Amino acid sequence: MRSWPVASVLAVMGYDIDSPREAGTTRRDVLSVAAVLLAGGAFTVAGPAPHAAAESDGGCGVGYDEEFEEDLAEADEAITDDRALAPQGPPGRFALPLRRRFRVTARYGVRGNWLAGHHTGIDLAVPSGTPVHAVGGGTVVLARWSGAYGKAVTVRLRDGHYAVYAHLSRISVRQGARIGVGDRLGRSGATGRATGPHLHLEIRARRGYGSDINPVRYLARRGARLL
Rank of each mutant, 00 (worst) to 15 (best):
M1V: 13
P5Q: 13
S8I: 13
Y15V: 11
R21N: 08
R21C: 08
R27N: 15
D29V: 12
L31F: 10
A34Y: 13
V36K: 14
G41V: 08
A42E: 10
G47C: 03
H51S: 03
H51E: 03
A54N: 10
C60F: 11
V62Y: 03
D71Y: 09
D71N: 06
L72V: 00
D76G: 12
E77T: 00
A78P: 07
T80K: 14
D82F: 12
D82S: 14
L85T: 05
A86N: 06
G89S: 10
G89V: 13
P90S: 13
R101K: 13
R107N: 15
V110E: 13
G112H: 12
G112L: 06
N113P: 06
L115V: 08
L115K: 09
H119T: 09
H119S: 06
T120H: 07
D123Q: 07
D123E: 05
V126K: 01
P127A: 06
S128T: 08
P131L: 02
V132P: 08
A134P: 12
V135M: 07
G138E: 09
W145K: 14
S146D: 02
G147E: 08
Y149L: 04
H161C: 07
Y165E: 02
L185A: 10
T191W: 03
R193N: 14
P197G: 15
R207S: 00
R221F: 10
R221S: 04
R221H: 11
L227W: 12
